[in-house]
Structures are given as structure tokens and as C-alpha cells.
Design a protein around this nucleic acid. Structure first.
Lengths: 169, 169
DNA sequence: ATAATATGAATCGCATACGATGTATCGTAT
DNA sequence: ATACGATACATCGTATGCGATTCATATTAT
């Protein structure tokens, strides 16, 4: 079978598995995966802007805006106008959520894949990581060659320069 | 960095790259990637039902139904009632599309990733494939363990038993 | 033969996801 | 001081993607 086909289908498959499996866990908390990711990032930074969230989570500003809006209406997040720059909206956890912020809600995103990796030997895990690194590097190279404008897009996987980012989902 | 985190983010990244990059190519033909996938499968089978498409492309029946509907309204596909079973809808290429069905529209999905792989040595490509196989196998095992009901879901990457499936996008 | 059940598809509601556009605000150049 | 461009965000339109429900048609059981 063609390698490209296999790889493409694999990525499709893995992505779908992640979304599906993680969602099943997340819905116990009444949130979706993207919502959990946003909450995790807000939790890690205490206060963030839409712009920052967009960069941290590698989603467009409009998508983040939508998700935040739903989380606000659910009472999980709070929006306040930024004093220094009225264009900016400060996003933080709501009082209730901040109180009993559940560690589980923050780790939803990793549990499932960790379980998968536990089925494999460290050696096999290493192979997967290596292959993944090769592919990601090649894709980045291709993107650069094609002049894919979104430079922020490149930052993914590097967790940027932000040290507070460790708790990010 | 945690392996699980790296892998999860990588899959996210790769999936996004595929969708974004492929879409750029596809929109020259006035279709999206999922639409191209549907057209490819219809092209390969000449006549298919929603159910079959759903199984071949690993999307839910409702999603396929929506996409087919858009392609019909664009004049790319045609729906006809099945004679043997009135519940079934036969889907085929429209006359115009069938005439000048562009090979390019069928290969949209692979071009991009092929370009990426060309940046790598055969040896590196093999590593990626191996790692991917390991991960996919592990995920399938996990799914089985968790009793993820969708058995059809498992078939992905196997291209089923259908020999006509070779041209599938 | 009729009732109960199963199946194929359409539809609805919701949640991403993105580009394009509009609006308010900020900085800066003139 | 004003005008212009840049920035941050919201909003709209469109396209997935999925589960739940509905509807018509088949199939099966009684």
C-alpha cells in the first residue's frame, strides 16, 4: 500500500480516535475537548486574552471566541474588560469553577493516549515518537517551502516560550 | 516532554496541516476535502448508497448525508431511488462530472503528503510508517479493550475487502 | 396476515473550525 | 490634532461531524 495513503489514513484515524475517546471522558464534566483545552489554558495562566488563547491552542481567533462564549454562558469562564487596553478582553475562571477546579478536567486530554502508550514497550514508544518527529519536521519544512503564512502555526509542539504553560491541556 | 503530550499534539498538528493544505488544493475544483473523498468513492464504485459511503469513509451516516446533499445541490452527484429497496438511495456521478472527471480531483488527498514524504529518505519514511503502525495497533487494542462498539471503525486502513476501492481518495 | 422489529436515510440541534467582515481602540506619522 | 494603519475581538456564513429522532420501507416473528 502507498505510504502516503497509509499515513494519511492513520492520521485521520488517530485524530478521530482522540476526539471520540476524549469526548467520552470529558462529557462527564459537561464540557467538550476544545472547551477543556480552553479551560486548561485559562487555569494555567489565570488571566488570558482571546489572542493569547488562540496562539497557545493554535486555533483561529474566531474559533476561540466562539468556544469562550459558550463557556461563559455555561458559567465556567468570566470576561472582563482589560483596563490597559480596552480592545482586550481578560478571560478568567469563574469563582465556582476556580474553587473546585477538578484536576481530572485538566488531564482529560492525556489520559486516553497514556493508556494507549502503556500497552507498548518503552522501546516501541520511542519508535513512535521518532517517526512522529520525522513526519512533523518534514511537514514543517514543506510548510515553510510553500510559504504557509501562519508563522504562529509553526510554534505548535514547542509550547512556545511560556513557562507557565506546563499545565496546559 | 511527556510522550503522550507530544504524540497528541503531533496528531493534532498533522491533522490540521492535512486539512488546511489539502483544502487549498481542493478549492480550485470547488470542493472541500470531505467532498472530494465522497466523489472519489462514488467514482470508484459508480453507484453507492449513503450507508456504503458511510462505511467506506468512516463517517457517520448523517455526516455523509449532509455532504452528499451539498454535492447534489452543486450538481456533482445524482440521487436516484433504488429499485430493489426503496429505502436505499443510489448515488452516482452527475453526467457532467462523469464526463470530465479530473484525475486531479481524485488525487487531491494524496498529493500533499506525498510531497512531504519526498523530503525524506526511504529509510526515514519507513520509520514513520513503522511508528504509525505501532500506534494505530495500540489504539485499536485499546478500543477493543474499552469495547468501543463501532466495529466498522476498526476496518479503517484496511480498505475493507473491496477491490474496487483502489481509487478511493 | 398482522404485529413487532430492524434498517436506510433525512433531519434537527449542537459544537467545532475557519475565512471574511465589521467595530472599537490603540499607535504612529504627518 | 488628525488621519491612517494595526490590533483585538465579535459576528456571520459555511462546512464538517456527531448523536438523537423521525419516517418510510423491509424483514421477521407470531
Amino acid at each position: 500500500m502507498d505510504k502516503a495513503v497509509f499515513i494519511r489514513e492513520s492520521i485521520y484515524f488517530l485524530h478521530r480516535y482522540m476526539m471520540k475517546s476524549l469526548q467520552k471522558q470529558a462529557e462527564d464534566h459537561g464540557v467538550t475537548i476544545p472547551q477543556a483545552r480552553v479551560i486548561g489554558d485559562v487555569y494555567a495562566h489565570k488571566i488570558v486574552s482571546i489572542k493569547q488563547l488562540s496562539q497557545n491552542l493554535k486555533m483561529t481567533q474566531s474559533t476561540v471566541s466562539d468556544i469562550v462564549e459558550r463557556l461563559v454562558s455555561k458559567g465556567f469562564l468570566v470576561k472582563t474588560a482589560n483596563a490597559n487596553d480596552k480592545r482586550v478582553v481578560d478571560i478568567s475562571l469563574s469563582a465556582e469553577l476556580a474553587e473546585d477546579i477538578n484536576e481530572s478536567i485538566l488531564q482529560i486530554a492525556n489520559e486516553s493516549l497514556t493508556g494507549v502508550l502503556n500497552l507498548l514497550t518503552p522501546n516501541q514508544q520511542e519508535k513512535i515518537v521518532e517517526g512522529m518527529q520525522l513526519l512533523v519536521s518534514a511537514v514543517k519544512e514543506k510548510m515553510k517551502a510553500e510559504g504557509m503564512d501562519n508563522y504562529q502555526f509553526f510554534d505548535i509542539l514547542y509550547f512556545s516560550n511560556d513557562q507557565n504553560n506546563k499545565n496546559r491541556i
